[in-house]
Design a protein around this nucleic acid. Sequence first.
DNA 1: CATGAATGAGAATTCATTCAT
DNA 2: TATGAATGAATTCTCATTCAT
Lengths: 215, 215, 215, 215
Amino acid sequence: MAYRATERTEARKAATRERIAAAALDQVADGGYASAGVQAVAARAGVAVGTVYRHFPSKAELFADVFRRASQRELDVMEEVARPDGRAPAERAAAAAEVFCRRALAGPVLAYSLIAEPVDPAVESERLRLRRGYRDVFANLLEEGVESGELEPHDTATVAAALVGALGEALVGPLSPGHRQRRDEALIAAIVNFTLNAFPRKERTDDGARQQQYA
Amino acid sequence: MAYRATERTEARKAATRERIAAAALDQVADGGYASAGVQAVAARAGVAVGTVYRHFPSKAELFADVFRRASQRELDVMEEVARPDGRAPAERAAAAAEVFCRRALAGPVLAYSLIAEPVDPAVESERLRLRRGYRDVFANLLEEGVESGELEPHDTATVAAALVGALGEALVGPLSPGHRQRRDEALIAAIVNFTLNAFPRKERTDDGARQQQYA
Amino acid sequence: MAYRATERTEARKAATRERIAAAALDQVADGGYASAGVQAVAARAGVAVGTVYRHFPSKAELFADVFRRASQRELDVMEEVARPDGRAPAERAAAAAEVFCRRALAGPVLAYSLIAEPVDPAVESERLRLRRGYRDVFANLLEEGVESGELEPHDTATVAAALVGALGEALVGPLSPGHRQRRDEALIAAIVNFTLNAFPRKERTDDGARQQQYA
Amino acid sequence: MAYRATERTEARKAATRERIAAAALDQVADGGYASAGVQAVAARAGVAVGTVYRHFPSKAELFADVFRRASQRELDVMEEVARPDGRAPAERAAAAAEVFCRRALAGPVLAYSLIAEPVDPAVESERLRLRRGYRDVFANLLEEGVESGELEPHDTATVAAALVGALGEALVGPLSPGHRQRRDEALIAAIVNFTLNAFPRKERTDDGARQQQYA
DNA sequence: CATGAATGAGAATTCATTCAT
DNA sequence: TATGAATGAATTCTCATTCAT
């Protein structure tokens, strides 16, 4: 009986921790990191401030955890889309870029917080991890292409990083509030094309066709 | 009757203002915007807190000024390098990208603050101006290429934005502290190549040669 | 599941709020509004500065609350004394004036702050409310007298305002620190008489008798 | 020659002092004491901040001086109007009250500052002096009336003080900004009547007629 | 284990006063 | 003597963190 009580207690504890983390993420998604005070998160989770500190040693750790999980979710999607499945690396990169865009456009505030909003150092390291994750997705595709002979040999790490930055920045303008009506589909097409261009193909005779693909 | 402010006095006042602005810039370059409290800036400038407020109406205005000037300096250099002078647009873009890299590598924390670190709204608008400036440099080159028939028609604004993000991000990894020994020249070459690839040329038969150019 | 705020906890919170409000009032009563910084009030209440802000959204709101309550207390007494109960309006006005005097003499600095010391706008509106309250007490009595035919028709609003000012100022001299021995009873009698004289009676043959009433 | 030079120098010095004092008064008349920082006064006087401190040991002393002189000016007018000249004391008091009202209505901000706005202690004592001066004007008239047998014996000091307060307060409502259209003449008539009523006459059969006097 | 009132260091800003020129 | 840049203590307000209940 003592055992079961403990089991239930621990389950409840875990559930509370979840609620807090979820509330923290929601708060960031709604108002950005700047709006995410401990008080606000606790209120959103329906717990007291002290409870937050029972589950997380500090605000920084709480958000590090939150960012880590949100990042992981994003990366999982990307990696799923980019997974080897017979398609050429460039094709899978195009799919990854498209997914990246669509998710960012669907939740702009969170996306901005995850990749750009300034936060404290402990959280920052999670942000870097996310960027590195994105980069690795592209780097792997590039490496694969080089190895299979489809792509020219090149500095894949740098190109991958550049691609991540390119995707982020190309979305920043459209994401900024007060921007005129969004032309999401055209934007996505342009970004995907940009991504494809970044892949240094050996023979480029089909370039035109490729670019039509998304126009 | 009343003594007039002498040239000496005015010069000293201007010098103090400069010292404060310089200290603010240094502080950002050393510890980022987050570390740049009014107190810290004043101490660094060797003046009292009140003195900062004699020269700038608010912290936001101080940093807006600082960012504006630093940004303008960067843009001037970029624009100078990208200026029409007989070279093809892509060639000038390569030069611009190279300059961008070299300057960022020379002052990484400042570069990061200028293009990425989140700050308050008044300052943020200066950052956006800088990004827009960078983007325009590339957008103009792309437009020029399209008009001259060298480049395929494309969404130049998006490509330009993507390029700005690409340059920034490709440098972030190497810029982050604790990174292993930097191989700056190779990095710059890769980034320049990336930039060239982003230019959608009409005939691409010389691609290989182009890529050798910087390898 | 979640522990609810107990009555004890809420009672303690309310008590702290009271302590802060009381400390604020005491501070004003001792040193005037000018001396009542947030720091000083907190220290007097035996709490930290932040605690003041947990209970009141701003310094202005704190003092608005404090002034509101102190004012209301004064007005309640005045209105009670001036309530219709068979006595003639002038008689009730005399009683009101007397009460006003006695209370002011009992807490001079507070009285001064409540009716005269300049404070910030949010608080000022409470002061005006008090003056208006006092004025209304007298204005109602005057109106009543006019309607019953006891008093000559006259500008009751102005006379009422003048009476409020008269009472206040007649007390200021005696209230100022360093004033020689106070002869409170004589002072009160004189002020009450002044009040009675301000009532423009239709027949005045009993004036002498009336004035004897309080001499 | 040295003598003349000194003479001229001193004259200039006195003139500067005057300019500063005048600027201080103007500033108070325009924006109240709260707006009268040393910087603002200096600017208004066309001198440097340091110059203010060459002529006055402190801000408090400057404004004490300014208030002293402004007060004296008001008192001089009052005393002139109330001077013995054959008219009955009550008549002269009515004239004094009227003058008081007219001047206050002509320069409300200054009037408010002189009699009510909270300032620092050194200045406060000047304000008290002014009130005492006003009071003395009325007290003298009341004494005179008592001595000549026109008035009942009474506490003249208290009645005089009450009158001063009455005048001030009766004007406060109308002086407050945003007050509906001012009916100055009716207001003055009511206040003068109030003043007359405060004079405890021995025979009062002419009361009705007196009140018509200003209606 | 949850609560939430309390903490207190730190932030930006103001302004009377000083003093080198 | 006039100047005005510089000073720095004081003010209001915020918020991550603690701890008695």
